[in-house]
Design a protein around this nucleic acid. Structure first.
Length: 825
DNA sequence: AACTGGCAGGCCCGG
DNA sequence: CCTGCCAGTT
């Protein structure tokens, strides 16, 4: 195992542990007794039960620094695992700060996935892969599955690739290779009809004859079972020299199980193991950790059962509960002093989470000053909710309602589901409120970016068949279904990659018509660009530009007349710019496959918009929690699929949301919301009822009592469309929360009678804007303060749809736009 | 081979 | 409301 020899030198063990030890230990200053215990109990297993805001990251980083400065371990002998890239980055920064120098020398601090990739590249051959394997994202995964389903003529309507992908994911999360899936998981037969080997041989030959363990499985007069399909899928991935996300863990666990010598070396190498967010580990991750920790048992896991919100992707709260059993003699440390939130916020969170049966039970406390009560407000509909929050954010910047002023950076909107973000984006764009979306629809998932990346992948690894399929006819080269099938057949018959197959097809003249010349050019181009990767005088950014230009991809968008085209070209430029921070194309591709986040470092304060899931581990002075409506939050689907367990996870999500707030927490719900474009009336979330009245202040929604904010009523908007069945339920709620049994609520009811649900309210603004809008015509060149120049692409109600040159296409209220000629410079 | 319009189904959450 | 798929055209 020669790869171990260079581990000593690995990425520089540049931090001088001995130098640190001579100094006192400032990193211990200010830790409370529990934290201190968590930091200083170095030997043997430690379980740190750390509630929200109790300083666990601080304890964890102090522990790392302690390990280093006492000389217990060198930086590259510590294995520190997190779930998200954000958490890993944060920990790296904080360790660096405490040490007073960058923590570059900690190569094994990272996400489970990132660390597993690193390990797997060293031992790829043990998993039947080459070390330059590619990592498939969910999109590639689904496409691969789809091809398999087609090969087996399995009905895609009845078994959508999506569903199958999630089944296989689940199995992988349980560390089940095809031969380990329990029989009862596979009781169902999946094929829709009988197969004779003759029927399937032409379509599926490649899968069944090339796979190692499953060649006989699907042939013959039998239905295809799920497990067999799983085996086929795994075999196919090996052919592609690829892994999906689940495989990264699964392969490593399998290698550790099957090659004790490999495991043993890593057990010795990683002298101390630290795990963040332990409640989120799934079985595969748990096994991986347990295998690595078996020798010295120096493992420290930090978690909070109340913040377990990843059950849907296989997380097992059970892992945290059975820690003491697995690691006998474990020290358990509880962190219960909260340093983040005010007592009101903490009380609200505690009261909500109390509704859960299955929990270890912690009580957080704080000695912070009382502060603001949690604020609750109901709105007419989702758009008004967005409007109100926008206005509230603007006024909170200057200080309002007796509160201190807050910067936009201090404020966050946390939503249950990402589709809720659009309402806020729309609203904030029109009023010009700067915002950043964290983890929204991601940059690297955009079509043009994925296309460009596929070209890069093909340049770096010509055998990447998925990438080839993606770009072979993009831009259009006259290579349709038939031509592509020909390439597939030739590649299969010769046992080569699609690209090589394409080269053969060109030589043999198997492709007719104008496609032939285009394909020849593509093949030649890829070969040429591939050679250029070795050219020292050519930066990889220049190479990227050459690839995009010479392939005709850039030209494709330049010739595109749709309003999105300029935005896409802009994105491509950004992509090339993003390459700058990397050694080469390969390194960049690796980064992107694991770190899909797209945090723009644009200057200026901004409100953050993100999902509750993305918010875990973060904190903000001001937090808005919109959309607390039954069905949306708690999510109907979650309850349908997982019953009480699902509801409890939703409740933990509510707990996570509230505990993100330091000073001001505002919860809101809307009476009407658009679902799939249809207006639907909504009931307030059951979690609203679980908020303790003593710690909640009910705000008056706009539109009541003339819309004054200072009105002292207890009124809040509720579902304005009354359903008699729900009426008694609401009255019932009213007696508890005292929210709905109020004049304002009744007034809302009356109003709803006059105003049909399907007809959104018209505001005074709208009348003005309709005048403003008429000043513009389609095609006119205009200017916007924030987005710059653009052309009017359409007019919709009070809004202009504008294709901006820099910012892409947006809908903007007319009064924020001026004709380009009027701009004074 | 490429484009078109109609239509079904989906929108939970992530590495 | 959005996207992806299908059938039918050009």
């Amino acid at each position: 195992m020669s790869s171990f020899d260079d581990m000593d030198a690995f990425e520089g063990a540049s931090l001088s542990a001995r130098a640190m030890a001579a100094r006192p230990a400032p990193y211990l200053d200010g830790l409370n007794p529990a934290q201190r215990q968590a930091v200083e109990t170095l030997d043997g297993p430690v379980l740190m039960l750390a509630g929200a805001g109790t300083g666990k990251t601080r304890a964890l980083t102090a522990r790392i620094v302690h390990l280093l400065s006492t000389g217990r371990a060198r930086p590259n002998e510590i294995l520190a695992v997190t779930f998200t890239n954000k958490a890993a980055r944060e920990m790296k920064n904080r360790v660096g700060q405490m040490l007073g120098q960058p923590a570059e020398g900690m190569p094994w601090l990272g996400t489970f996935h990132a660390i597993c990739v690193k390990l797997l590249r060293r031992h790829a051959e043990l998993a039947g892969l080459k070390s330059n394997f590619t990592i498939l994202d969910t999109d590639d995964q689904k496409r691969t599955l789809k091809q398999l389903l087609q090969a087996y003529e399995i009905d895609e309507k009845r078994h959508p690739p999506r569903a199958i992908a999630s089944l296989f994911d689940r199995w992988k999360n349980n560390a089940w290779t095809p031969d380990r899936v329990p029989a009862k998981e596979d009781s169902e037969l999946w094929g829709e009809r009988l197969y004779s080997s003759q029927e399937i041989s032409s379509a599926t030959r490649s899968y069944e004859f090339r796979s190692r363990n499953w060649e006989s499985g699907a042939v013959g007069r039998r239905l295809v079972t799920a497990v067999e399909l799983y085996g086929m899928y795994q075999a196919r991935l090996k052919e592609l020299n690829a892994c999906d996300f689940g495989d990264l863990l699964l392969h490593m666990v399998t290698i550790f199980r099957n090659y004790p010598d490999v495991l043993e070396k890593y057990q010795r190498w990683f002298r101390y193991i630290l795990v963040d967010e332990y409640q989120d580990t799934n079985v595969a991750q748990y096994l991986w950790l347990r295998l690595l920790a078996q020798g010295h048992r120096n493992i420290c896991c930090v978690g909070d059962d109340d913040q377990s919100i990843y059950g849907w992707r296989g997380a097992e709260v059970g892992n945290i509960l059975r820690f003491e059993k697995d690691f006998e003699g474990a020290h358990v440390v509880r962190l219960e002093q909260n340093y983040r939130s005010t007592p009101h916020i903490l009380a609200a969170a505690s009261n909500v989470i109390r509704g859960n049966e299955s929990r270890l039970g912690k009580e957080l406390w704080t000695d912070a000053a009382e502060g603001e009560k949690v604020r609750l407000i109901g709105h007419w509909d989702g758009e008004e909710e967005a409007r109100w929050i926008g206005e509230e954010i603007e006024s909170m910047q200057n200080g309002t309602r007796g509160m201190r002023p807050f910067s936009l950076d201090d404020m966050a909107i946390l939503v249950r589901a990402s589709h809720q973000m659009r309402a806020f984006e729309d609203r904030f764009l029109t009023i010009g409120l700067p915002y950043r979306v964290i983890g929204g629809p991601r940059f690297y998932e955009r079509m043009e970016i994925r296309d460009a990346m596929a070209y890069f992948r093909l340049v770096v690894s010509p055998a990447d068949d998925l990438a080839f399929e993606r770009v072979v006819n993009t831009p259009k080269r006259g290579l349709g279904d038939k031509a592509q099938q020909t390439i597939q057949r030739i590649a299969r018959d010769n046992g080569v990659s699609l690209l090589d197959g394409a080269a053969l097809a060109v030589e043999q003249g198997a492709i007719k018509g104008k496609g032939a010349a285009a394909l020849r050019e593509l093949v030649a181009g890829l070969a040429r660009w591939g050679r250029m990767t070795g050219d020292k005088d050519l930066s990889h950014m220049e190479l990227a530009e050459i690839v995009l230009d010479e392939s005709g991809y850039t030209a494709m968008w330049q010739n595109d007349k749709t309003p999105e085209a300029p935005g896409r070209l802009e994105n491509l430029k950004e992509l090339v710019k993003a390459l700058e921070g990397f050694e080469n194309l390969q390194g960049f591709l690796e980064h992107v496959s694991l770190v899909m986040d797209n945090e723009s470092d644009e200057a200026g304060a901004k409100v953050s918009i993100m999902t509750l899931h993305a918010a875990k581990g973060l904190e903000f002075p001001v937090v808005f929690l919109p959309g607390w409506e039954d069905g949306l939050f708690p999510s109907q689907r979650s309850m349908d699929e997982s019953g009480v367990k699902g509801l409890e996870e939703e409740r933990r999500l509510a707990y996570v949301g509230i505990t993100r707030a330091e000073e001001v927490c505002t919860i809101s719900f809307a009476g009407n919301r658009r679902v799939f474009g249809q207006w639907q009336s909504q009931m307030p979330s059951r979690f609203v009822d679980e908020l303790p009245a003593d710690h909640v202040e009910v705000l008056t929604p706009p539109g009541l009592y003339g819309g004054g904010y200072g009105a002292s009523g207890m009124a809040a908007g509720a579902s304005p469309v009354m359903r008699t069945a729900a009426e008694s339920d609401l009255q019932d709620k009213a007696s508890r929360a005292d929210v709905y049994n109020s004049p304002g609520w009744r007034r809302l009811q009356e109003r709803s009678a006059q105003r049909p649900v399907s007809q959104p309210r018209e505001s005074r603004h709208q009348v003005i804007d309709l005048e403003a809008v008429s000043a513009f015509s389609v095609g006119e060149r205009v200017f916007h303060q924030k987005f710059g120049y653009g052309a009017v692409a359409g007019i919709e109600g009070d809004k202009l749809e504008i294709a901006f040159e820099k910012a892409g296409t947006k809908k903007v209220v007319a009064r924020f736009v001026t004709a380009a000629d009027d701009v004074p410079f």
